[in-house]
Design a protein around this nucleic acid. Structure first.
Lengths: 166, 166
DNA sequence: GGAGACCTACTCGGATATCGTGTGTCCGAGTATCATAGG
DNA sequence: CCTATGATACTCGGACACACGATATCCGAGTAGGTCTCC
């Protein structure tokens, strides 16, 4: 999985903790975790395109959350960074070669290039991936934030202060 | 996800359908789906290292299943090809930079390099991935085979015949 | 003193290099088969 | 005719290139704020 997903999640939480009344620059967010600023900027742009963040240019510019944390799921962030296509993509090899229209995975038809029935392998893999997506979609960043604050109650203030430091 | 996973799964089912009394060469398995033989061979080697397949060299050599389908889970195959490490790997960026020991994700300690408490983000992602793995581990290739035969009852014979064809 | 225009500095946004991993290919080690020669 | 032996061809196994995407970087477009000038 893309490393930017981790950066994006941390940055979203950091943005939430800074309050949101002032936009935070990509450089500042990156410096907080010793990340390459320009590359983090690229990832944040993806979040903007997905409607998760808003951005403003110029002085006093930067990024801010476009909606509250409880309306941002882990799935949203992952999709924004990784893209919408699923990890296991069935290339329909069962339909290629001498195996012909209904090689091994299934395909009730006869001689059809791509059978109407999804091959059993792709189906099973899709079910597993669906379970993954369901879990990600069920958990919002607000949940994660609560859990994080429970573990480290001082974190929000520390971040707000550090971000405020010129 | 690695494309070889799909090839490996199809090949395992094809091996099961051919019966198993005779080993099948990588070239034959590859030709059935128009795959590059040498590369498929590489993937099958991974299955051998994982103990899923057995291999014999020389004439009349090839691959065969090392154990019945109901004792091979989708998780086994995926792990054999993709490796054991999980997709989302937490790089502990919360412990880097000015954020220090307990940046944002959690970490109850103070000033520790890598806090003992797993950061909330990594925890949430791990839970989702666990759901994925659980689903994969719960489904055996025998299940997939049954489903495939239900969709295409003629597939087993067709494959056995084609493999038997010199 | 107040207002308007200009200038400056700062930030995002996308175009541009670099690197690593997956993808694909090739040749050597090992072995069962077959032919052959000898008893 | 039966057996031992050598040659042979075939297969896996791992070492060797190539390509594409992730990673990392840089420069231009656009804008808010400050400043300077003019009324």
């Amino acid at each position: 999985m893309n490393e930017g997903v981790e950066w994006a999640l941390h940055s979203c939480l950091n943005l939430a903790w800074t309050g949101g009344e002032r936009a935070v620059t990509a450089a500042r967010l990156a410096a907080y975790h010793d990340l390459p600023a320009a590359y983090l900027n690229k990832q944040l742009q993806a979040l903007v395109r997905a409607g998760i963040l808003g951005s403003v240019s110029g002085p006093r510019g930067g990024f801010r959350l476009a909606r509250p944390l409880d309306r941002i799921t882990l799935m949203d962030v992952v999709t924004a960074i990784e893209g919408p296509e699923e990890a296991f993509r069935c290339t329909e090899i069962r339909a290629q070669g001498p195996g012909g229209g209904a090689g091994d995975g299934g395909g009730g038809g006869g001689g059809v290039e791509v059978p109407a029935v999804e091959c059993a392998i792709a189906g099973a893999m899709a079910r597993a991936e669906l379970a993954w997506r369901r879990e990600l979609a069920a958990r919002t960043l607000e949940d994660v934030r609560r859990e994080a604050e429970r573990q480290a109650p001082g974190a929000p203030d520390r971040i707000r202060r550090w971000i405020a430091t010129a």
